[in-house]
């Protein structure tokens, strides 16, 4: 029998089908592990029938879908599994919210959101998969979203 490299969790959240090599960025978007004391397991470049993927397992914390949806920016095919008593209690695919605030910085160096003004970066989502966003301020669409994550 093939042994799992990461053990199942009793309670918490499993983020599966993360685009390969993006797990660390996913954690950064979610602001994890800040304020989290339980175990977090990260598997990178895991072989699957669709090619390589990353997996993140967060024990003893059920992530709010609204909070997790932001990761669709860099992993539009990711799925979220809420685990209770070793069973998948809920499962859903990530979906980008209409607006992304304070997560991505604008690729335009002369955009006012990159200055010292008291505003957060703000993007309108114009496409889910592939993820496409447009700066609310300068209307520029960054090509390299993954590189622009704050």
């Amino acid at each position: 029998m093939k042994e799992l490299k990461i053990q199942p969790i009793e309670n918490g959240t499993v983020i599966d089908h993360i685009t390969a090599c993006n797990a660390i960025k996913v954690l950064r978007i979610l602001g994890i592990p800040e304020g989290h004391s339980s175990t977090i397991s990260v598997a990178i470049n895991v072989k699957s029938h669709l090619g390589k993927k990353d997996i993140v397992k967060i024990e003893n914390r059920e992530l709010d879908p609204k909070e997790v949806n932001k990761i669709a920016l860099i992993s539009p095919k990711a799925t979220i599994n809420i685990i209770r008593d070793f069973e998948v209690a809920e499962k859903f695919k990530v979906k980008l919210p209409k607006e992304i605030v304070g997560i991505v910085c604008c690729s335009n160096p002369t955009c006012v959101s990159n200055s010292n003004e008291p505003v957060k970066s703000r993007f309108k989502v114009i496409s889910q998969d592939p993820a496409k966003i447009k700066c609310y301020y300068c209307e520029r669409e960054p090509d390299d979203i993954a590189e622009r994550i704050i």
Partner: peptide, 13 residues
């Protein structure tokens, strides 16, 4: 009129 893109949009806030 301002040299930075998005300045007028910011002004509305």
């Amino acid at each position: 009129r301002h040299p930075q893109e998005g300045a007028a949009r910011l002004a509305t806030e």
